[in-house]
Simulated assay, not measured.
Amino acid sequence: MTVYVIALLCVVGLAIGQILFKVSAAEITASGSIFSPKAAIALLAAMCIYGVTSVVWVWILQKVELGRVYPLMALAFILVPIGSHFVFGERFQAQYFIGVALIMIGIIVAVRA
C-alpha cells in the first residue's frame, strides 16, 4: 500500500513539474528572453522534480508490476488541468468534466483488475 502512496506522490510531482514548465514558458514569452531568471528557476525546478520522480518511479517498479501501477499516471490528466486552472486561470467546458469522470472510472477499473 505504501508503494501506491509513493506512486501517487510521483504523479503529483509530475503534475507540479508540468505547471512549472508552463510557468517557465509563460515567463519566457513575457520577458522575451530565454535567460529570464524567473523562467530559469521555474525550468530548473521542474527538471529537478522530474529527475527525483523518475528515480523514485524506478524504485516503485522494483516493488510493483508496471501494469498495476501505471494506470495511476492517468491522474496527471486530471491534476495538471486543475493546477492550470488555479495557477493560470484556465477554464474548462462541461465535456472536460465528463472526460475526467471517465478517466477516474478507468483508473479504478484498471487498478482493481
Rank of each mutant, 00 (worst) to 15 (best):
T2K: 09
T2H: 10
V3W: 14
V3D: 15
V3M: 09
Y4P: 05
Y4R: 15
Y4L: 12
V5T: 05
I6H: 05
L8D: 00
L9N: 11
C10I: 00
C10E: 01
V11P: 03
V12W: 00
G13Q: 02
L14E: 02
L14S: 11
I16Y: 07
G17I: 00
G17Y: 00
Q18M: 09
I19G: 06
F21L: 06
F21C: 11
V23A: 03
V23E: 12
S24W: 01
S24R: 01
A26T: 14
I28P: 01
T29A: 00
T29V: 03
T29N: 10
A30Y: 01
A30E: 05
S31R: 08
S31T: 13
G32L: 02
S33H: 04
S33Y: 01
I34H: 00
I34D: 07
F35I: 03
F35N: 13
S36I: 13
S36Q: 11
P37M: 09
P37W: 05
A39I: 02
A39G: 06
A40H: 06
A42Q: 01
L43P: 04
L43H: 07
A45H: 03
A45Q: 13
M47E: 14
M47P: 01
C48A: 02
C48L: 15
C48Q: 13
I49C: 05
Y50R: 04
G51F: 10
V52I: 15
V52W: 09
V52A: 13
T53E: 14
S54R: 03
S54T: 14
V55I: 15
V55K: 06
V56P: 01
V58A: 07
V58W: 08
V58D: 01
L61Y: 11
Q62H: 06
Q62R: 02
K63R: 12
V64R: 08
V64H: 03
V64W: 03
E65D: 15
G67W: 03
V69G: 15
V69Q: 12
Y70L: 04
P71C: 11
P71Q: 03
L72N: 11
L72C: 04
M73Y: 05
A74V: 04
L75A: 10
L75I: 04
L75R: 01
A76Q: 08
A76T: 08
F77H: 08
F77R: 00
F77D: 04
V80W: 14
V80E: 00
P81S: 10
P81R: 12
I82R: 02
I82W: 07
G83Q: 09
S84N: 08
S84W: 05
H85F: 07
F86E: 08
V87H: 01
F88N: 07
F88Q: 09
G89D: 09
G89T: 05
G89R: 05
G89W: 04
E90Y: 06
E90N: 06
E90F: 11
E90R: 06
E90M: 02
R91E: 05
R91N: 08
F92V: 02
F92A: 12
F92G: 04
Q93W: 07
A94V: 12
Y96C: 08
Y96F: 07
F97W: 15
F97G: 11
I98H: 00
I98R: 09
G99Q: 09
G99H: 11
G99S: 13
V100Y: 06
A101D: 07
L102I: 15
L102A: 10
I103W: 08
M104T: 14
I105Q: 03
I107N: 15
I107W: 14
I107R: 10
I108W: 14
A110K: 15
A110G: 13
A110D: 14
R112Q: 14
R112S: 15
A113W: 12
